[in-house]
């Protein structure tokens, strides 16, 4: 499990519009990398390009390479569906499937692909995933209740359980705490610390304290102006980024002077 990612010279387009330009960044295995930057700087778009989710929007495409353990995600014979099985994702707003129970939600990755498995095997996956997501003790008595009945923070952890139930190599998180209250947020941040042992995690966040708390590496994105493409300004160890950034824009953003 847990693989490293190497992005080189990635351009992301929507139709003719260049949204993100020339990103080159390595992401180490078993680490947490945080993307920060002002709204509209392309950090979420870039995150989505790491498991080809941005292709869901019509006209979206990329140039450049994204190598996961040496394999190019954008090679011609690469199936985006398989890419997404390898690289899981957690979204901004918790989105459990409303027609499924808690257990079914955890197994959704398997169930939706009609993978056959024994009951005991399924139960194992449910328990292991929910334990990893720190939700097991709260829901073990109501696994057959609808997932939409949980609180927002529980729903988000359910979504994390769902994402790791398929045992992906990488876990992408797109502002996973922005719709949650502070207590649920801190539960999820603790969870990210735990998950780091097994997964490569990339997280987009608007909250700089959160980036400082959870990440090993931080990357700062910015855009020159409205209608300009977003760029990666700099990246480095989180401590260095927050104490002694190289680019003045990074420093200004981290100190809260804009964004």
């Amino acid at each position: 499990m847990a693989k490293s990612i190497d992005v080189s010279d990635l351009n992301i387009y929507y139709g003719d519009f260049l949204a993100v330009e020339g990103v080159t960044i390595p992401v180490a295995a078993r680490s947490v990398t945080a993307f920060i930057g002002p709204s509209g700087c392309g950090k979420s778009t870039f995150l989505r390009s790491l498991n080809r989710m941005h292709e869901v929007i019509r006209g979206a495409r990329v140039d450049g390479k994204v190598l996961v353990d040496g394999q190019d995600l954008y090679a011609d014979d690469m199936d985006p569906v398989n890419v997404r099985r390898m690289i899981g994702m957690v979204f901004q707003r918790p989105n459990p499937f409303p027609t499924m129970s808690i257990a079914e939600n955890v197994l959704a990755g398997q169930k939706l692909n009609s993978k056959r498995m024994k009951k005991s095997e399924a139960d194992d996956i449910v328990e292991r995933s929910l334990r990893s997501a720190g939700l097991w003790n709260e829901v073990k008595d109501r696994l057959d209740r609808p997932g939409s009945g949980l609180s927002g923070g529980q729903q988000q952890r359910l979504c994390i359980a769902r994402a790791i139930a398929t045992q992906p190599e990488v876990l992408l998180m797109d502002e996973p705490c922005s719709a949650l209250d502070p207590i649920s947020t801190s539960v999820i941040e603790d969870l990210i610390h735990e998950l780091k042992k097994d997964y490569t995690i990339v997280i987009v966040t608007h909250n700089m304290q959160q980036a400082a708390r959870v990440s090993d590496t931080t990357a700062f994105f910015n855009l020159a102006g409205v209608g300009q493409p977003g760029r990666l300004i700099e990246h480095g160890p989180t401590e260095k980024m927050f104490s002694n950034p190289e680019d003045p824009a990074t420093e200004a953003y981290i100190q809260g002077r804009f964004g």
Binding site: D16, E55, R61, D63, Y74, D76, D79, V81
Partner: peptide, 17 residues
């Protein structure tokens, strides 16, 4: 423009039955 479209089409080729 044409090259853009052709790469886009090439990218979406591996579809499942």
């Amino acid at each position: 423009m044409t090259s853009i479209q052709s790469t886009a089409r090439k990218r979406s080729t591996p579809t499942r039955p």
